[in-house]
Structures are given as C-alpha cells and as structure tokens.
Amino acid sequence: MQASLQPAYLLHRRPYRESSQLLELFTAEHGRVGVVARGLRRRSRGGSPGALLQPFSPLLVGLVGRGELKTLAGVESGGGLAPLRGDALLSGLYVNELLVRLLHRDDPQPAVFASYATVLGALADAAPVEPALRRFEGELLEALGYAFALDHDALAGTPVEATRRYIFEPGVGLRAQRPGAAGTSFAGEDLLRAAAGDFTGSAGRAAKGILRSALRELLGERPLRSRQLFLRRRERSREGS
C-alpha cells in the first residue's frame, strides 16, 4: 500500500527491538503521531532513512496503519535546513519537549505546525533565540485554546495602560494590580511593547514570565527537563561573573 507523503518533523526517537525505532513525529495532517520505523540501518540511494530521520529537519513521511502506532512506509528529506547549534539546539530540544508534553496524539494542529516551522527556521538562521521562543510559546498557547492578549486588561475589559502595573493570572489573563498589593507584577509599558512583537530587554523578560506561568498551568507538576539545562547554565555564568 502506497501512502502519500506529508510534511513532518521528528520530535523524538528511541530504539525499539533489534533495528527498529519508535518515533514521535509531528505531522502537518495528523498532528503528533507515534510511529514504528523498521530496518533503519539499511542503506539506500540518497542516504539511509536513519540518517535522514533527525530532529529539526523538514521531512516528508508516508505513514500506514490505523491503530495508535502507525508504521513508517517512506521518508524523504523535505528540504535542507542548517543544523541547529549551541543554544539554538538546546532551544530546539525545549520546543520539542513542549510539543511532546502538550499535544495529544492524532490531534491535527496545522497552526502549531506552521509556528513550529517558523521557530525552527529562526533557530537555524542563528536569529536571537528568545524572541523566536516567545513568539512560538504565544502561538502554541493560542492554538491550544489558552490565548490571552498582552495589551488587554481581562478583568476591566480595557486596554493596558503604559503607566500602570499588571499581574498575570493563568486562565484569566492580565489585570491591573491594586495599589499596594504584593506579588509579581509587570509594567504596562513592557506589556504593550511585547504585544507589538518587541521582545527586547524588560519587555522580553515580562513576556517570558507571563508565558512561563501560563505554560506551567498546562504542564502540571512535572517540570520541563530542557528548561533545567538552561537554568543550570545561567547559574554557572552568574557564579563565573
């Protein structure tokens, strides 16, 4: 049976039996799918399928089967993308972990697929990592139905004012901080800049804090392991300086 090829990315793979692998693919048509790939050590013209199947590179895959686990019927390169290096690579692992944790299997997410392609493109181009990640996190939350506006006071129903301070409540959104109230708050000015797509300096830090607490709500108790890679590195650079 010939399966038609569809765009996909490899999120994760682990060995399965003798020469097979269990793949976690993110496909354009079916969302995240679990796939068995057999005989990946074979060699063929244009490279062995095992070498092609790497995270962060666009693929075209053919899948067969109806159950929860599909079988890989074919894989081709979907166009070259420079391999991720350094911090971009760690960021890529972070993005993949987010998708594996937050997307359900066999739930098509075309918007997330497009955002994912965009963030990988930015990471491969050695663009600044943080703004690309913020944009992706925002788009992911939106696609999953947890959208909130950075320039809107969700409680009062009014636009955010540059001179006031706001607090973020997961599930609700931003609301103006009462005078004298404690807790983490964000400057209205930073929120307006972040809403306009400017993630530099304090606006970037505000967006990061807000997106992180929104994601934490979805992720539950178990922390993201890839974020710990960054945390530990930051601690070290602080010790060094």
Binding site: G46, G47, S48, L52, P83
Partner: peptide
C-alpha cells in the same frame, strides 16, 4: 556521495 544523505553531506 550519491548514497550519502543530505544532512551528512552538509556536515
């Protein structure tokens, strides 16, 4: 070279 995949060739 013909049998080498694109990623490896790029490397």
């Amino acid at each position: 070279l013909e049998y080498v995949d694109g990623n490896t060739l790029m490397h």
